[in-house]
Design a protein around this nucleic acid. Structure first.
Lengths: 151, 151
DNA sequence: AATATATTGAAAACACTTTATTTATAAAGT
DNA sequence: ACTTTATAAATAAAGTGTTTTCAATATATT
């Protein structure tokens, strides 16, 4: 993400905390910053490892709690790729994207397709739903893995 | 599902077990039958409860193990709706469907859209992926919940 | 029948996540 | 500044859902 987008999100997070009468503690700042800097979906362990390098006695529970806050604030969302783990990614200030995952090598491509987005809206409208969010994961085998005969 | 489709799947499951040198035990039969009869995504607890009524000392571990077999056989797939639980649904002998979920009341509509399926194939082709499967969940608020002012 | 193999339920182990408790920190009041 | 009060933190403990272990049992093969 661009620094100006990060800055916007930081302001939003501050406002969110303020309205909830919560504090912007140092731990929350570190977690927020490292999360925004990381430019892809990240899992708890990775985020824990990264933030622990900045502030060595940050707790795992605090990571969980802060991520929950970020989700509540609408800055972040949870995504899953079928490996049982939860991943988190920034959504605020970014255009929506879906995932295309290679089941052999695990390569994970983020893509955006406006036509697809439009079609999803149409489907929702057909069932008289007002969409709030959506997740789409396409699983397959990438070109490289196919050329290596792996599927 | 129609009984003839269930029968087909049963045959397939039997063949699958045979090729793996596994046995079609009574527990596996009961779990298979109840799963097929249930006409929507089901979670472990529910399946456990249902099968336990048929055979009162069926174990939870056996449910997990049998579901794993059914997934390996390609008869069933796991789906998740963001509530932390895993659900399972029959895919063999049914056309693919996606899910439209009301975030207020939890209503879960299964829908199939051929145009959408085609578009997914196109996207995969663009990235030179060979699709194996895909999951799409649309989250929103249904008409009823909106009319009640719940979102 | 004897032997080998697969399957089971129950319990233990496991991984991920949440909650409870005590301690530390920050804000507000004096 | 100093005390009071409230909030957040780390750590540890508890809670989930799922998988694995294990001894006992059932099924198939010789």
């Amino acid at each position: 993400m661009q620094e100006k987008d990060i800055e916007k999100n930081r302001e939003y997070f501050k406002t969110f905390l303020a309205t909830q009468k919560l504090r912007l503690t140092n731990q929350r700042q570190v977690i927020f910053d490292e999360f925004m800097k990381y430019d892809s979906h990240i899992d708890i362990d990775k985020l824990y490892a990264i933030t622990k390098e900045i502030d060595s006695n940050i707790g795992l529970a605090t990571i969980y709690r802060t991520i929950k806050l970020l989700i509540e604030a609408g800055i972040v969302r949870e995504v899953r790729f079928g490996d049982g783990r939860s991943y988190y990614e920034v959504i605020m200030g970014k255009i929506h994207h879906d995932h295309l995952i290679c089941v052999v090598c695990g390569k994970n491509i983020e893509f955006n397709d406006p036509d697809l987005e439009a079609m999803q809206e149409q489907i929702a409208a057909k069932y008289k739903f007002k969409l709030t969010n959506h997740y789409m994961n396409l699983f397959g085998v990438c070109e490289k893995c196919r050329s290596l005969g792996m599927g």
